[in-house]
Design a protein around this nucleic acid. Structure first.
Length: 450
DNA sequence: TTTTGAGTTGTTCGA
DNA sequence: GTCGAACAACTCAAA
C-alpha cells in the first residue's frame, strides 16, 4: 500500500475521474495536489482567478480538507512533493494545450530523474485530441466530417464511483491566495456539486427545446456548462452518456463536439492560438492609430452605439460570460466593422471570460474572422441590427444590460439613432456606419483573393 | 489519381 | 411581404 500523488489541474471533481482512480488503485492513499503556476495564474484575469479559487475551495471541502496547495513552477514542485511523500507515481489527466503539453513533458523528465513516473490517464475530452483521424491518418480540418468520425470513434462510459478513497496528508501546504477584486462581477456558483446541479436543471428544463431556444439571448436557455467543463467539474463523457436522439440532444452533442474539434485542431496546430490558420488572411488590412484605439476602447466598454453589441460587451464585464449568439455578433463587429485584428478581441475575451478556454475561444474568433478551419465565405458579415431584431425581437436582452435604453420599449431599442430626438441621454451615437464598414470589409477581404 | 459533393450560425437585392 | 439568387472561389474528405 503506497502513496501516490493526484496532480489536479483542470479536473476539479471526484466523480468519473479516471486519473484519480488510477492513483487510488490497490487501495493506495492519495495526495491531491494543486500547483498554482504563476505562468498560468498571471494572465488569467480576475474572473477566472476567482472562479478557480472557489472551485478549489469546493473541492477541498469535498476532500475533507485534504487538498494540498503549492505555489511555483510544477517542474520544481512535483519532484519535491513526490520526494517528501515517498511517492513513486504522479497521476494526471493528459493536457493537450500548447503550454500544458510542454510543461508535462518537462515535469515528466524531472520526475524520471528521481525514479518517479508521471502517469497520464484520460483527458478533459470524451475523445482525446489527436485520436480522431481521416482515412489518410491526417487530422480533420472541417467540422462536419470530424463530427461523424468522432461519433464513430466513440468514448468510454463514465467511470464507476468508489467510496474507498483514502487521502494522504503532507505538511507545508500553502493556503490559497486571497480572491482578486472582482468589482461588481457576479460569477456562477463553483464546484462539482454546483456543476451537477446546473446540468440536471438544464437537462430537465431546457434540453428538449435547446435546438431553437439556445439562439435566443433574451431567453437565456443555453446550458451555461462551459465554465464547469473548462475546470473539469464535470466531464463531457458524463453528459454524453445521458444524451439520446431527440433534436435538442443531438444539437447539444454537436456543441460538445465543437469543443472537442477545436481542442484537436489546437493540438495539431499549436500556433493557431496566435496566428490565422489560413496564412493568406494574415495579410488582411487592419486599421491602426489613434482612431482605431478609440474604437477598440468603445467596443471594450460597450459604447459602440449599437445596442446589441453593447449589451453583449457589458454582459461580459458584468458576468464574465456572454451568450454564444452575441459572442459572434460582437466579434464580427470588431473584425468587420472596426477592421481590427481578431487576436485583440480574443485576448480581451480571455481576460474577462470566466469560461475562457484557449482552443474554443481562439478558434471561435478565427471562425468569425474567416481565418479559421472552414472555408468561410468572406461575405459573411453579421448585421448588428438585424441580428438583434432576429434573436432579441422584443429588445429585452438589450434593456437588461444597457440601462440608458431601458426607457425605450420594444424592438425600437435596437436602433436608437432612429428615435425621435436621437439616442437617449448618456447613450452614444454610432461610432461607425455598419453598411459603409460592411462594404469596406468586403473590399479588404476581396483583395486577398487568389 | 481523379472526381464529386459539401462546407454551423449571413445579408442584400431584385423579382 | 416573400423568396430565391448572388455574393467567389477554395479546400477538404471520401468514393
Amino acid at each position: 500500500m503506497g502513496v501516490r500523488v493526484w496532480w489536479v489541474r483542470r479536473d476539479l471533481r471526484l466523480a468519473d475521474n479516471p486519473a484519480l482512480l488510477a492513483a487510488a488503485r490497490d487501495n493506495a492513499s492519495v495526495l491531491p495536489l494543486f500547483v498554482l503556476d504563476p505562468a498560468l495564474w498571471r494572465p488569467a484575469g480576475a474572473p477566472r482567478q476567482a472562479y478557480l479559487l472557489r472551485s478549489l475551495r469546493a473541492l477541498d471541502g469535498d476532500l475533507g480538507g485534504a487538498l494540498h496547495v503549492r505555489r511555483g513552477d510544477p517542474v520544481a514542485v512535483l519532484p519535491a512533493v513526490a520526494a517528501l511523500l515517498g511517492a513513486d507515481e504522479v497521476h494526471v489527466a493528459a493536457d493537450h494545450g500548447p503550454y500544458g503539453a510542454g510543461r508535462d513533458t518537462a515535469v515528466e523528465r524531472a520526475l524520471a530523474g528521481r525514479g518517479v513516473a508521471l502517469v497520464r490517464t484520460g483527458s478533459p475530452y470524451a475523445v482525446a485530441p489527436g485520436r480522431v483521424r481521416t482515412g489518410d491518418g491526417t487530422p480533420y480540418r472541417v467540422y462536419t466530417p470530424f463530427y461523424r468520425a468522432w461519433g464513430a470513434h466513440g468514448w468510454r462510459p463514465p467511470a464507476a464511483g468508489t467510496d474507498r478513497l483514502r487521502w494522504a496528508a503532507l505538511d507545508g501546504a500553502r493556503a490559497l491566495p486571497a480572491e482578486p477584486d472582482l468589482g461588481t462581477v457576479v460569477l456562477p456558483p463553483a464546484g462539482e456539486r454546483a456543476a451537477t446541479e446546473r446540468w440536471l436543471a438544464f437537462a430537465e428544463a431546457d434540453l428538449d427545446g435547446y435546438a431553437s431556444d439556445r439562439d435566443r439571448p433574451d431567453r437565456d436557455r443555453t446550458s451555461r456548462l462551459s465554465v464547469h467543463l473548462k475546470y473539469g467539474e464535470l466531464h463531457p463523457r458524463t453528459l454524453l452518456a445521458e444524451l439520446g436522439d431527440r433534436p435538442g440532444h443531438e444539437t447539444f452533442r454537436r456543441e460538445l463536439a465543437w469543443r472537442e474539434f477545436y481542442a484537436d485542431v489546437l493540438h495539431h496546430q499549436p500556433g493557431s492560438a496566435r496566428t490565422s490558420l489560413q496564412p493568406r488572411l494574415a495579410a488582411l488590412e487592419h486599421d491602426t492609430g489613434a482612431l482605431a484605439e478609440q474604437r477598440l476602447a468603445a467596443w471594450q466598454a460597450g459604447r459602440t452605439g449599437y445596442p446589441f453589441v453593447d449589451a453583449g460587451m457589458r454582459q461580459l464585464l458584468a458576468e464574465g460570460w456572454v451568450h454564444n449568439r452575441v459572442r459572434m455578433v460582437v466579434a464580427s463587429f470588431l473584425v468587420k466593422d472596426l477592421h481590427l485584428p481578431w487576436p485583440l478581441g480574443a485576448h480581451w475575451f480571455l481576460r474577462h471570460l470566466v469560461d475562457g478556454d484557449l482552443a474554443s475561444n481562439q478558434h471561435g474568433w478565427q471562425w468569425v474572422a474567416g481565418t479559421g478551419t472552414d472555408a468561410a465565405p468572406y461575405h459573411r458579415v453579421f448585421n448588428p441590427v438585424g441580428q438583434g431584431l432576429r434573436f432579441d425581437p422584443d429588445g429585452d436582452y438589450v434593456r437588461r444590460y444597457v440601462p440608458e435604453l431601458r426607457g425605450v420599449p420594444g424592438p425600437a431599442v435596437h436602433e436608437p439613432w432612429a428615435l425621435r430626438g436621437g439616442p437617449p441621454a448618456g447613450y452614444p451615437d454610432r461610432i461607425v456606419d455598419h453598411s459603409v464598414e460592411r462594404t469596406e470589409a468586403l473590399r479588404r477581404y476581396q483583395q486577398l483573393r487568389r
